[in-house]
Design a protein around this nucleic acid. Sequence first.
DNA 1: ATCATGCTTAGCCATACCGCTAACAAACCA
DNA 2: TGGTTTGTTAGCGGTATGGCTAAGCATGAT
Lengths: 115, 115
Amino acid sequence: MAKHDPTLDHLFHALSDPTRRMMLTRLARGPAAVTELAAPTGLRLPTVMRHLSVLEEAGLVTTQKDGRVRSCAFQPQALAPMRDWLEEQRKIWEARLDRLDDYVMTLMKDRTDES
Amino acid sequence: MAKHDPTLDHLFHALSDPTRRMMLTRLARGPAAVTELAAPTGLRLPTVMRHLSVLEEAGLVTTQKDGRVRSCAFQPQALAPMRDWLEEQRKIWEARLDRLDDYVMTLMKDRTDES
DNA sequence: ATCATGCTTAGCCATACCGCTAACAAACCA
DNA sequence: TGGTTTGTTAGCGGTATGGCTAAGCATGAT
């Protein structure tokens, strides 16, 4: 059970920006060069590069240069920690609902005993 | 298909901070007052209040005052847009894999035709 | 050899974020 | 009433973020 998990920090932070989500969605369809990635955003290249490095930092994207072109690829397994975290929260929440349920049942039983 | 979805922005941003995730995990176990929520963080109250309002902004938490104590409650349905987004990405990715698969099959067929 | 292409680096600017203290307000408690 | 508990507001300081321009560098095309 991680107390401080910088992985989740980076993941969630990377996804909190619409431009970065747009870039990621594009990359989910297949690899792309930086310029190609930048085009639909309407942003300048240095700006896009920065977004790209945030995505790399989060492990969501890997890149490699081939010639003068940098090719970027989506890494779907990087989303796993997020799914895991969601699942963990869901379990905690449902355990709570179960306890609530037990409690309500107890109340009903008490009422039955009284009658 | 949302182009700019501030909901996702707020959601992911809210979850990008370990303190806020800790608070949320605590609240998943059941409602709590602000002070109770602050205790395990080691942070001052105003700081925690700020985190709390970020969580509220994202819809992840609702609060209400009764007496002088503010009670905070987790809102699990607020996580739905995130699940949806994840699912959307997964679909795009898998569609891509399917296309890749088709392509490989085509290549194999060509090789077979050649032999 | 020259030029165009595709990044890449450096650095500026405005705003947002995350922590804090200090001071105030509104319950509740004795 | 007077004190304690529980928020709440205002505002400060340092850092991070997200945009930009300008200039540099390496590669590919002519």
